[in-house]
């Protein structure tokens, strides 16, 4: 079970995998995630499902190597298996006819955004997609997102592609030219989602964000992933992961994401001392 069927390096430290998960694939919907373990002593980590193929019983995960578990995943080969994959977890995205939707993605968050873009397009929405990154090579899945978008805007910090700037510059450009946006989604690094939400507020656009707090079980059983939304404590694993971006207590979320900073460093250093050279990443 949970065998890696395909694997590709799509950017420095970023990987694209298809995994055999016949049980998960039957009911998965855009916006949902799985919790995986690489091996029996591994940590449980949540990853949003980037795509799924019901016919062939496989799901697609796109991730960035940032800590021990994702480094291990990056080192896994086609034919290797994950110890555990459980899901689909979380509440699916609200895929319905909104009108015009503004889809904002950054980093590997673009992977989580992709099935929502596709779903919304198939529902008949006008889809304007803004993908951002530090440089052109780090903006992933451009072709796939374009296939389901009426318009694609790329923003790069270094100006190597599209608008020189960040995704919020793209958001302002769309509104300033006179487009009416009914709903927005922003998925990416927490800081990007925070500023997308603040900008959307200024622009008067309701916005969904997909939060990525630390989780353990992913089924509402431990409360590790609690976030504050509009003043109430929510469990991202079952109440989310998508929430009203205007209501999220961003600074609290960012502090909670650093909860195990010291241990994460110890874990990664131990791994690196065991595997040695990692320039292949």
């Amino acid at each position: 079970m949970f065998e890696i069927l395909e694997k590709e390096r799509i950017a420095p430290k970023e990987y694209d995998m298809w995994i055999n998960a016949p049980r998960v694939v039957n009911h998965v919907k855009p916006g949902q995630f799985v919790v995986i373990r690489t091996h029996k002593k591994g940590e449980r980590i949540p990853l949003t499902v980037a795509d799924f193929d019901r016919e062939n019983g496989k799901i697609r995960l796109i991730f960035q190597a940032v800590g021990k578990t994702t480094y291990e995943m990056a080192a896994m080969k086609v034919g290797d298996s994950f110890s555990d994959v459980v899901g689909p977890l979380g509440t699916p995205s609200e895929i319905k006819k909104h009108g015009t939707v503004l889809m904002i993605g950054g980093g590997v968050g673009i992977a989580a955004l992709f099935p929502i873009i596709r779903g919304l397009k198939q529902m008949g929405n006008k889809v304007i997609t803004i993908l951002g990154g530090r440089t052109s090579d780090l903006v992933i899945m451009k072709k796939e997102c374009a296939e389901y978008s009426d318009e694609m805007i790329i923003t790069t910090d270094d100006g190597s592609e599209g608008i020189k700037g960040v995704v919020t510059d793209g958001m302002k450009a769309v509104v300033n030219r006179g487009d009416h946006v009914d709903y927005a989604w922003a998925i990416g690094p927490t800081i990007m989602m925070k500023f997308s939400a603040l900008t959307a507020k200024d622009l008067g656009i309701p916005i969904w964000v997909s939060l990525n707090p630390i989780m353990v079980d992913g089924t509402g059983m431990c409360g590790a992933c609690r976030v504050t939304v509009n003043g109430n404590i929510k469990f991202a694993c079952v109440d989310g992961p998508e929430f009203d971006g205007h209501g999220v207590s961003w600074d609290e979320l960012m502090a909670r994401l650093k909860q195990y900073k010291d241990q994460e460093k110890i874990s990664l250093e131990k791994y690196l001392s065991e595997v040695g050279e990692t320039s292949w990443l």
Partner: peptide, 23 residues
């Protein structure tokens, strides 16, 4: 629930031999 799950189920008392941390 979280504290005990991390310790008992995820073996965080054996970190970093096991990957799951605990404060």
């Amino acid at each position: 629930s979280e504290f005990l799950t991390r310790i008992n189920f995820m073996h965080s008392y054996e970190f970093p031999e096991y990957d799951t941390p605990i404060r």
